[in-house]
Design a protein around this nucleic acid. Structure first.
Length: 740
DNA sequence: TTCATTACTTAGGAACACGCGG
DNA sequence: CCGCGTGTTCCTAAGTAATGAA
């Protein structure tokens, strides 16, 4: 497919160029037939019968019509000049309206400079603010620096106070209380001014297996060279996995393994089937058992060592603040296992050495030292990027990075900005929808395809679907890369008209299956797109993500295909929460409602998971618990009854008290039962759905925080510790009437 | 302008830790 | 107190989209 696209693009380029030349000729009366000469529209025909339209005005553009049926309306347009105007308004004149929006903000925001918080909100709206503000940037920079210094001073104070105050206070406060969201942001592409870190932690070196653990080839024990042995252990460790039985996996592994062998080994070991790794495999199993059975002291020791490494390598200083690093450990060598049907599964992922590593830090920082006797590949000082360390991985040749934790300023700001963009989309989504509906009728194929694809992205929250290189990765698609074979059209299905059935593998080879009724126009268009195509042809052959995103960029500043996913996810959560939450319910029931709203989003975004292996069992366990609780409840009720009867007869204080106690017991048990039942429902509904992904990446956390505040639900019930760290900005700034 | 490269976000599953009930 | 199951954290693959070089 990629190949085909390349071909097409070249063709386009060629044509565009030609068109200009032809127009020149036309201007000079070089033998072209003028079909229209209205002030809004030029229509002229080439010798090859193609008709070229040119709309004139601010947004002048060319369109090529290749069929006669397109020509007829064009003539009609000519005769009715008014209609031409109308067409123009609908089709091409709208972008200026959209474009003016951010400019409005731009003129407003400087006036709001004084209020820090307000101004920042707007800052998000106009990220591309021109360099005019440069002087202000400087100010901002200084401000940032000043504030950072203040905090540093506080730190110093705290340190002094440590002796008296005790460690807790001094250690925790400065970092946890830094509210970066109340400070100015860099606006000129600079990501930081100061960055210092200790570099990565390398994978532990290979430890050869003891000599009594043998590898057998063709039934005979064979001592392997350390390099070959290491790769063999990678395979041995995976022996239980299903994919060591897969052909591609075995083939790739064997090929890469042989590369590590000595020539002697290479000549001996020629067939993977004759290799016996079982002793190695047993050895590793025994080792992991031993690790589990370790004494508390030993475990504690390991834990402490890990903590020490975390303290040393797990943090960096960025702009005077200590920030947590996400993945400071280099990926250890092993066998690559891509997801789905990956053509490269089983290949050897090589060990990363210091000479593979690029370090990024600021010039005036203390550079990290490479391990003794080694060198870094490079030390650079690029403050336009956020990564600290990078290296090139050998499977796909892509670059891997060490970056900061989601709780860091640099990630948090970006996350916040993402939701602000989605909120801006909310303001103009109606117009964009109206426009793509209009575009379904366009005379141009590429515009119709673009409009239909955008409709899918909006309605079904599909991913954009970049092209991928064939044979390098699993065959998965997104919207723009859908192929004819991935959809089926039903003029009628189960009593619904114009149903489209989607069935394809998306990101991570997760299946997307959905049957959706669509509008008639969309349906007809799809039929048109599929005409005369093979199943493996692109559905949208005149579209790719870059064309689509370029178009979206014109509709709204900062708009790309993925913004629709964020927008639709967040707006769905907000609307579902409104719908599902009832005031008189207790907290567990409200949380069930929240989870249900979350679930609606996860379903929309197709976030699936493999049903947990223990699912059935744990469901049964829960049911047993519920049954037991029911019994307990009826017992308690019976006791209450008899206590009441008793109280009626005796009429003394003691028996009255007993009634009260029993009543409370019944109430308590009822509540517990209710809780269990809610839990069961929640779990059942969640069998194949993963909530985490949407919660972490798509749902504006301020919606959840506002919901918690509104209904008096502790935010801890919705977000765990890590999530609260990531969303600290939202927890701090959203109040109960926050509207997405 | 185009294409490849680079940077950064999103994703599911495995490993791990920890709390709860027996 | 222990074992088990679950929630959390880690891991890194696989996307999207911006950037940069030709």
């Amino acid at each position: 497919h990629k190949h085909k696209d390349k071909y097409k693009d070249k063709e386009h380029k060629h044509k565009d160029h030609k068109k200009d030349k032809e127009r020149e000729k036309f201007k000079h009366g070089n033998g072209y037939l003028v079909l229209s000469d209205s002030p809004h529209l030029e229509i002229w025909s080439r010798r090859d019968q193609c008709v070229i339209l040119r709309l004139i005005g601010l947004y002048s553009c060319y369109a090529e019509c290749v069929t006669l049926s397109c020509l007829l309306p064009a003539f009609q347009m000519k005769s009715l000049d008014g209609k031409v105007k109308k067409e123009k308004e609908n089709g091409f004149a709208s972008p200026p309206h959209v474009k003016s929006e951010p400019e409005d903000d731009f003129y407003h925001s400087p006036k709001q400079e004084k209020s820090l918080k307000r101004e920042r909100d707007d800052d998000n709206d106009s990220e591309f603010k021109p360099k005019k503000i440069k002087t202000e940037n400087d100010k901002k920079g200084k401000k940032r620096k000043r504030e950072a210094e203040e905090i540093n001073q506080k730190k110093a104070k705290n340190k002094k106070g440590e002796v008296a105050d005790g460690k807790k206070k001094a250690k925790k406060e400065p970092e946890e209380k830094w509210k970066w969201w109340e400070e100015e942001r860099y606006t000129d592409g600079v990501k930081w001014k100061f960055l210092e870190h200790k570099g990565p932690v390398f994978a532990p070196p290979y430890e050869p297996v003891p000599s009594h653990v043998k590898f057998y080839y063709d039934g005979k024990p064979m001592k392997l060279s350390p390099q070959a042995e290491e790769v063999a252990t990678f395979f041995a460790k995976m022996l239980d996995h299903e994919y060591t039985t897969k052909d591609i996996f075995r083939k790739n592994f064997f090929k890469d393994w042989r590369k590590e062998m000595t020539s002697e080994e290479k000549s001996k070991i020629t067939d993977l089937k004759k290799c016996n790794f079982s002793e190695m495999s047993e050895y590793f199993k025994a080792q992991s058992e031993a690790r589990k059975a370790m004494s508390k002291e030993e475990k504690l020791k390991i834990k402490e060592e890990n903590e020490r490494i975390l303290q040393e390598y797990g943090f960096c200083i960025m702009d005077k603040h200590k920030e947590r690093i996400a993945n400071f450990r280099i990926e250890p060598p092993g066998l690559f296992r891509g997801r789905g049907d990956h053509p490269k599964m089983g290949m050897l992922k090589r060990r990363i050495r210091p000479q593979d590593i690029i370090i990024n830090c600021s010039k005036d920082s203390k550079h990290p030292e490479p391990p003794p006797g080694t060198k870094w590949k490079e030390v650079r000082h690029d403050n336009k990027v956020t990564w600290l360390v990078s290296w090139t991985e050998n499977i796909q040749g892509s670059i891997k990075y060490i970056m900061l934790n989601p709780s860091s300023r640099i990630k948090g700001e970006k996350d916040w900005q993402k939701y602000e963009t989605a909120r801006r989309l909310k303001k103009c989504v109606d117009r964009i929808r109206a426009q793509y509906r209009e575009d379904w009728k366009s005379k141009e194929m590429r515009i119709r395809q673009r409009a239909v694809a955008l409709y899918f992205i909006d309605k079904l929250a599909l991913r954009a679907g970049n092209e991928k290189e064939e044979g390098e990765t699993a065959d998965t698609v997104g919207c723009c890369s859908l192929r004819v074979e991935h959809i089926k059209l039903y003029p009628e299905n189960d009593g619904q008209e114009y149903v489209v059935e989607f069935d394809f593998l998306g990101k991570d080879s997760i299946r997307y299956y959905n049957k959706v009724p669509v509008e008639k126009r969309v349906f007809k268009n799809l039929q048109l797109f599929m005409e005369n195509k093979e199943p493996d042809d692109d559905l949208f052959d005149r579209l790719n993500t870059s064309i689509l995103n370029k178009h979206l960029q014109e509709l709204m500043d900062g708009l790309t295909a993925k913004v629709f996913r964020t927008y639709n996810a967040s707006i769905t959560l907000q609307q579902q929460l409104k719908e599902l939450t009832t005031a008189d319910e207790n907290i567990p029931a409200k949380i069930l409602s929240y989870n249900r709203a979350n679930r609606a989003v996860a379903i929309l975004c197709n976030h699936q998971r493999a049903p947990p292996k223990t699912f059935e069992k744990s469901m049964q366990n829960l049911q047993t618990k519920i049954d037991a609780k029911r019994d307990q409840l009826s017992d308690a009720k019976r006791e209450l009854k008899s206590a009441k009867a008793d109280a009626k007869v005796r009429k003394d204080e003691k028996s009255k008290k007993a009634v009260e106690t029993k009543k409370k017991a019944v109430q308590r048990i009822e509540e517990q039962l209710m809780k269990l039942e809610v839990q069961a429902t929640d779990r059942e509904e969640n069998k194949q759905i993963a909530l985490g992904t949407s919660k972490l990446n798509y749902l504006d956390p301020r919606i959840s925080v506002a919901w918690c505040k509104k209904w008096g639900i502790p935010v801890e019930k919705i977000y765990n510790k890590t999530q609260r760290e990531k969303f600290a900005w939202a927890i701090d700034m959203a109040d109960e009437d926050y509207e997405f």
